[in-house]
Nucleic acid binder design. Structure first.
Lengths: 104, 104
DNA sequence: TGCATGTATGTCAGTAATGACATATACTTC
DNA sequence: GAAGTATATGTCATTACTGACATACATGCA
């Protein structure tokens, strides 16, 4: 099983709407989870491409290494805000952000 | 002054980083504000195109009319999460979301 | 004018996300 | 195998966001 798939499934272990089963994911819920997985993956890729450690990134956004790790692992307690701010802090442009989101 | 411009400036009345002045916005801060303005505008456009009232949208996302109004006005107390979830609830695909973000 | 509908703004108690910290695991390199 | 570096996981007090509510503003229409 590919890693991206696995994380996607893991990420589904969330507080979902009415139908709690994975199979019952609504289109919106699915899109939302996918979005988060993409941003998480994009963040990790961007960070590594920049040769930056989690500690260094954490400092630049005034957060902590543990939170960066959680961001990249798709932890449900991390907000889209923090995810996006982190990507921007790594020099990601809005256009690149869009590319990450549109990527399939 | 165009409305989009005005809102952008208003949105800058935020809790910013070290340089509090508008002129001192860092590239990331600028990109972040722009992103929020785009999403807010995209939400309003999408909702109106769907012929849905703020009250109806609020019900579909189990929120309130006041919060929807705040979302569309670029209120800083609204999270990206809620903004994105609202767009998804209106049937926006991740690809369309990317288009909104990439739009200049 | 009065009334209905839609949107905007302010407040607030409850809840979710936060950074910090401790600690664990995984690799290197010596 | 100890020591160093990078990442992962769990907990917790503080902060930020939340829905709900009240109310104000705007527009249209009888």
């Amino acid at each position: 099983m590919r890693e991206s798939k696995r994380k996607k499934l893991e990420a589904a272990g969330w507080k979902l709407g009415s139908p709690k089963e994975l199979l019952g994911l609504s289109a919106e819920e699915q899109a939302y989870i996918e979005l988060r997985v993409k941003l998480a993956g994009g963040l990790k890729a961007k960070r590594q491409a920049r040769g930056v450690t989690q500690v260094q990134l954490a400092q630049s956004i005034r957060s902590s290494q543990s939170r960066v790790a959680k961001m990249e692992s798709g932890d449900p307690t991390v907000s889209l805000d923090l995810l996006v701010k982190s990507l921007l802090a790594l020099g990601t442009s809005n256009r690149e952000l869009a590319e990450i989101i549109a990527r399939r």
